[in-house]
């Protein structure tokens, strides 16, 4: 569902920053500083994210990899996540609950004990599981001060927005009806105010 796939889904952001445009070298440096960290699967249990290059998802080198395509900057957000199948967690819950009850001479585990046990099992199994990488394309159009991000998954969009702001020290604002009007130079300020004070009118009740 990315930039060059047959079908794409995307949302758009405006860079809301009047400061000087970033040079290509500065963009390379920022991407390198926040590139996807290579961490062994056995050392992480939580999702890990960072930038990677468009043509080299799993071993990026932002000093030499291609990031400029015509007038556009293209790179990717990589997010690695661990996923433990529920049936494996259930199996461990049954076996370890039984063991704890035998050791403590109890007939049952309290709700809190079960919750703690499940957390421990999930953490232990997560460290044993390989991460599953997902890669999402980013298209930056500097002339339009616009960035297109190729997914509409809300949780991924939030990670993207946070990392983009942190990386480039710039403000990006998602485009939707209100912000489109806000950033539209073809609509005068008095007309924008008219829109801001408007509300839905039922066509059939008008």
């Amino acid at each position: 569902m990315g930039l060059l796939t047959s079908t794409s889904s995307f949302l758009r952001y405006k860079i809301d920053d009047e400061s000087q445009e970033l040079s290509l070298e500065k963009i390379r440096l920022c991407l390198k500083e926040n590139q996807f960290p290579e961490i062994a699967d056995s050392e992480i249990s939580e999702p890990v994210s960072g930038w990677t290059s468009y043509e080299n998802h799993f071993d990026p080198d932002f000093e030499s990899d291609h990031i400029k395509y015509g007038n556009y900057i293209v790179f990717c957000l990589r997010i690695d996540k661990k996923s433990v199948p529920k049936k494996i967690i259930d199996k461990h819950m049954v076996l370890e609950s039984k063991k704890i009850m035998q050791e403590t001479n109890k007939d049952y585990l309290s709700k809190n004990e079960k919750r703690k046990l499940k957390e421990d099992i999930l953490l232990r199994l997560s460290l044993q599981m390989p991460s599953i990488p997902d890669v999402y394309d980013v298209l930056w159009m500097p002339e339009k001060k616009e960035v297109i991000f190729f997914t509409t998954q809300k949780s991924v969009n939030e990670i993207f927005e946070t990392l983009f702001r942190l990386t480039f020290k710039t403000s990006i604002v998602r485009l939707f009806p209100y912000t489109r009007v806000y950033f539209d130079d073809g609509i005068s300020d008095p007309k924008k105010d008219l829109f801001y004070s408007s509300s839905h009118i039922n066509i059939q009740e008008s």
Binding site: T7, S8, S9, L11, T152, L175, F176, P177
Partner: peptide, 12 residues
């Protein structure tokens, strides 16, 4: 086109 956001899906 999705109305609430004007996001694009299924661009082909």
């Amino acid at each position: 086109i999705k109305g609430e956001s004007l996001d694009i899906s299924g661009f082909n």
